[in-house]
Amino acid sequence: MLDTIQGTRTVTRGGLTARRGRLVMLGRTARRSPLGALGLVLILVLLFAGVFAPVITQYEVNEFAGLPNETPNSTFWFGTDKFGQDLFSRVVFGARISLQVSFLSVIGGTVVGLLVGSFSGYKGGWMDTVVQRVVDTLIAFPALILLLMIVRLLDPSLRNVIIVITIVIIPGVARVVRGAALAERNNQYIEAAQALGATDLRILLRHIIPNMLPLAIVISTTLLGTAILAEASLSFLGLGVPPPNPSWGADINTARNSFPINIAQAFFPGLAITLTVLGFNLLGDGLRDVLDPRLRGSS
């Protein structure tokens, strides 16, 4: 759907309408939004690190590779922790966990939020009221407190961390999508479709939801950064993905509590979190500029 929206966007020049290729679009986008392009590069580097982690790193995550607490050197680029584990390996493999958690939870949260929001906005009536009150209720909780309460209900595991973050993401997406669906419903083409006898389900699936997709994509890109921070915060508090999985947040916490203090162990995972979130935020801003002309230049 995104492709059709982009592909059919036409550019009038000298009275002629020209259909632009997708690659050209991409190049133009990158030029118009250099920061967005930078974000994309950061994310691609990170994805590469996550996917090819075993190739990039020399040591296993939980391998006692060297002496304890070595400072960064040519063998151990980021130094070692108190067990002599290679911190570079831990940061690179940590990317896997972070990306897995953020992508899965954001995809899950966006899909559910998109469906709920579209349905609620399009149908209106008492269903809408009920859904909106539930959303209001969940949004009123400070996100971290809601995360803490739900995470305490479940056993610590990778899967449960993903579930918890998904749940916390849903209401925000549902609210934004619902607002947009409400506006979309008032378009004449919807009326035309109804006059032609299209069922509600068909209108939802063929018209409303596809038109919500660009919006959902923009929201979800920014949410990826939020999800990374959420996972890191939970791990930092010792409630995230349990060991022996390497986790950026957990490593910062370990560094904080270890003696002697290991600056490198706190520094590099935090830098990784920052660059990842930065990448997703920049990419989200760039996508928003391209997909939502109304907001162009507003930030």
């Binding site: 950064g225 921070l229 930092f236 706190a266 930065l278």
Partner: peptide, 10 residues
Amino acid sequence: AVPSFWIATL
């Protein structure tokens, strides 16, 4: 983009 707990730790 910076996690607050990281800055706090540093």
